[in-house]
Design a protein around this nucleic acid. Sequence first.
RNA 1: GUGGCUGUAGCUCAAUGGCAGAGCGCUUGACUGUGGAUCAAGAUGUUGUGGGUUCGACCCCCAUCAGCCACCCCA
Length: 423
Amino acid sequence: MKSVIQAVKGTRDFYPEEMAVRNWLYGKIREVSQLFGYQEYEGPILERIDLYAAKSGEELVKEQAFVFPDRGGDLITLRPELTPTLARMVAQRQNTLVYPLRWWSFGPFWRYERPQKGRTREFFQWNIDLIGVDSPEADAELIAVCAMFFEKIGLNSQQVGILVNNRRLMESQLEQIGIGERLRQQVFRLIDRRDKMSPVDWDAYAQEIGLHVEQLQKLKEMLSDPELWQMSSELVRVFEILEEMGLRQYVQFEPQIVRGLDYYTGTVFEARDRARDGRAILGGGRYDNLVADVGGNPLPGVGFAMGDVMIGIVLEKYGLLPNLAKTPAQVLVTVFDETRIKLSFALAAELRRAGISTIVYPEAVKLPRQLKFADRIGVRYVLIVGPDEEAAGVVTVKNLTTGEQENIGRLEIVNWLNRHLPD
RNA sequence: GUGGCUGUAGCUCAAUGGCAGAGCGCUUGACUGUGGAUCAAGAUGUUGUGGGUUCGACCCCCAUCAGCCACCCCA
């Protein structure tokens, strides 16, 4: 035990139980993505570091990416996010793709950070994007995808909410109080930290950036105005569409949401536990310059990303993780003794040809051990072929759930199982 | 990158500086063709790792690794 080599920090082993949950999540993601007509795609896991230099945000690449030189000396990055890859893939075939593009993906990502609650170094992320349209209806569609996903997975609008804002709205409001492009990024950071700092520290931080007392006062008024969204024709339209789609209850305006990544240009949103537990479940928004930033012609887009770790924590908290069958096997064929091993293997092969998932015990150990094994892996039916059965031309079928058993004619067994197995 | 807490049996956790334990799980049996329940017996440890203090260290000190949590940042 002591000599087992340690797993890499911040990675998780997916034992069959965890793998089943991950695949279940993947399935729900696929279901909702396809329900909206999105196509699945995937990019490489390795990218040149230059791809991220463009726009991802300084820190994400410099300090939070796994970077290494390949044998030719080029710096290669384990992808920390997918959006730049998406932008590259679109730019490469910009003139042949049919717009608007609706694409989704689910795959692994890496960030070199200290692991903690809701965050690991290796994680899986759902990315979904609508590219080639800059309408608020497109923004609303992505938010709707998000809300439908919650609905499908069993999270109701009392448990989780999608907080929405618009960077253009915030920019114009900031203009009105005399904050221009020069201070914009810093003020966005300030807004982003409103809840994370004490009011006193926050005021001090604001003044440090260079806000006058009057500007700070006006900024506070902005951030506490729940009706501010009505100043944005885009947000008005977004909420209107979501209302018509019957998903309005999941969504609310939140002026403090501006998102960390630099490439967002319009509507931004993130989903959180309503109880304010933990970090954001997902985050996204509109990015209208990204394709141009990697060398393509300007093309607008909107999308979001959801990590598997935080959604897993939320689903666990609300008891929504499914009870998944332990084994895919529907039937276990026991081996009665050495001389009857061939009988059991032949029977198992016959069941498999009929499409029945079957395990055959691989050695002639005592029957109680084989039954105990069947019970522990969670298989429903056990088949026994001993001397009595062989002589009578039957098979004993035992249902481990009910404890009942009966003899079925050897030639009837496939039909019998097909009638009694679930599905 | 910064700070805090924690590392003892497969798991969850006890043990005043003085013989390393319990519950669960596991193995075997009660039950030679039947799992779960019950009862009985049994096995399991380099106390994360490396140093130091001490007559003596799971316990105190230092370092290191890992896990958890917060910061930073973000999914």
